[in-house]
């Protein structure tokens, strides 16, 4: 944390290398959020870069009392929601859904690789059916384990609105799940 504060301070004074350290430290959560929101690796890469550039430009407005990673995720989430609204992306193709370099640790067996791919496609397909705001709430809750209060702060809404978004998103996800089970 001390190193993070030092990097932030130096980056605020225009030190690109210090900001580079922050990028290295938080590239994975930022990229993952962009990937879960946008659904394809190339768009997620671009979104992650853009989010970091925006963070650098607005670094002076960062308040030290707030968790830095949450601040970054907030920027990423807003950017991705804007992108989705612009693109009106309602459904992703299966080819786009799978990033080639996702999550492999150790040496998985071919069966494990296939299983991971299939799971990944299903996750992205389900997320893609959700409206952007609901998708962001689900990703922040499931992948980052953020509290209602943190999600509310990031999205600029009330905690009740977060509960409502999660409730509606889960309702939709459960319906999709049952449909997929019925299809086999």
């Amino acid at each position: 944390m001390e190193r993070e504060s030092e990097w932030i301070l130096r980056a605020q004074q225009g030190d690109h290398r210090a900001f580079g350290q922050l990028v290295r430290a938080y590239q994975r959560p930022v990229y993952n959020l962009a990937y879960r929101m946008l659904g394809d690796a190339a768009a997620a890469e671009e979104a992650a870069q853009e989010a970091f550039l925006r963070a650098y430009q607005h670094l002076r407005s960062y308040q030290p009392g707030r968790k830095f990673v949450n601040w970054l995720l907030s920027i990423t989430s807003h950017y991705c929601i804007d992108q989705l609204r612009q693109r009106r992306l309602s459904q992703l193709s299966l080819e786009e859904s799978f990033p080639p370099d996702i999550l492999c640790s150790g040496q998985p067996t071919p069966e494990q690789v296939v299983d991971r791919r299939e799971r990944e496609i299903v996750v992205q397909e389900m997320l893609a059916r959700l409206p952007p705001d609901h998708r962001a709430a689900v990703v922040l809750r499931y992948w980052y384990d953020l509290s209602y209060q943190e999600i509310a702060q990031m999205a600029g809404i009330s905690e009740e609105a977060v509960k409502s978004r999660l409730f509606r998103a889960r309702e939709q996800l459960a319906r999709l799940w049952r449909e997929m089970e019925a299809e086999g």
């Binding site: 580079g20 993952n32 499931y142 799940w177």
Partner: peptide, 26 residues
């Protein structure tokens, strides 16, 4: 269904970016 889908989502790990993301940002 809700429990299954929640479990399924919690099992999906963080996606990793390309190795040169930080370099590209810099």
């Amino acid at each position: 269904a809700l429990q299954s889908v929640s479990y399924f989502l919690t099992q999906a790990p963080l996606a990793s970016p390309a190795a040169d993301l930080a370099f590209r940002v810099e």
